[in-house]
């Protein structure tokens, strides 16, 4: 007997949300950052993990960009709805579970900051970008992908937060170009602060010697701190992500304000955020490459 519940209708609704997103994706800013996790994060390649998830359902993965992921999400939502109606709860729950982890592990943590930055940087794309962002946040609430957990113990591996390693021994320019710095910075933003047109999305550490550039960049991160906290307060289902991002943004802004250069050895040395007794992030040698 088909199961008489609202579950199928809820999945239908979510299908419509995802399908709507596939129809109204903001155009990718030309010559700027593409809506792909690997590009936004830079320090790890999620492709194998995405391929594994897609293969489990026979989904033919494309570029893995936001449009592709929205199609996958829509397909999973429809699979869930149809499974409830076909009296196949084992399939339905699996589709729901896989969609929840898809959103939590592979989409929301980078796509929300990305879309938020698109809206701020590219006014002509603001509406679709914010619509997508808000839809993801609403889904995050329903799925409670990353609720704030007191103490965070066991939620992330030692030396990491919900985004990944806190210490990254990459070149400074690389790090500021990653969402792991606490913010997505587009090429257009850098151009407007620096006053020169750039060949591509890149960062020259010498620019930090310019006090006005450094101040503007610091301010950008300080604003981000508050913005992430506000988002966390209004979205408890994903608050952990935004609190972590706010801490990252705060560390970045503090480092920028103090020295003009980020310390290559990482956030832990700047005297903020970790006390001397916290062995979690210290004395463990070079950080492990992310998988």
């Amino acid at each position: 007997m088909p199961i008489d519940s609202d579950a199928a209708s809820a999945a239908d609704h979510e299908f419509e949300v995802w399908a709507g997103l596939t129809r109204s994706l903001p155009d990718s800013p030309p010559g700027d950052l593409a809506p792909i996790e690997a590009a936004v994060v830079r320090f790890h390649d999620p492709r194998p993990d995405l391929e594994r998830r897609a293969a489990a359902w026979g989904y033919e993965l494309g570029q893995g960009d936001l449009g592709d992921l929205a199609r996958f999400g829509a397909a999973l939502a429809r699979a869930e709805a149809e499974a409830w109606r076909a009296d196949e709860p084992h399939l339905a729950t699996r589709a729901l579970e896989d969609r929840r982890f898809l959103v939590g592990d592979r989409i929301i943590h980078w796509a929300v900051p990305y879309l938020d930055a698109v809206g701020r940087c590219y006014p002509d794309r603001r509406q679709p970008a914010y619509r997508y962002r808000d839809a993801l946040l609403a889904m995050g609430e329903r799925m409670r992908c990353a609720p704030a957990v007191v103490g965070r113990e066991g939620v992330a591996a030692p030396g990491e937060d919900s985004f990944g390693p806190l210490e990254v021994s990459a070149a400074l320019g690389e790090r500021l170009l990653s969402v792991w710095s606490g913010l997505v910075v587009f090429r257009a933003t850098l151009e407007s602060m620096h006053g020169h047109r750039l060949e591509g999305r890149s960062f020259d550490e010498d620019w930090l010697d310019d006090p006005s550039f450094r101040r503007d960049l610091t301010t950008l991160y300080q604003i981000a701190v508050r913005r992430w906290i506000r988002i966390a307060e209004s979205h408890p289902g994903t608050a952990r992500l935004w609190l972590d991002l706010s801490e990252r943004a705060e560390k970045t802004s503090a480092a920028l304000a103090r020295s003009g250069r980020l310390l290559v050895s990482g956030y832990g040395d700047d005297g903020h955020g970790h006390d001397e007794d916290d062995q979690t992030h210290k004395g463990q040698g070079p950080p492990e490459p992310a998988e």
Partner: peptide
């Protein structure tokens, strides 16, 4: 695997 794309180019899925 059923990859019957509909008008939204959203495939139908079957778990493996």
């Amino acid at each position: 695997t059923h990859q019957e794309h509909d008008d939204l180019a959203i495939p139908r899925l079957q778990p493996g």
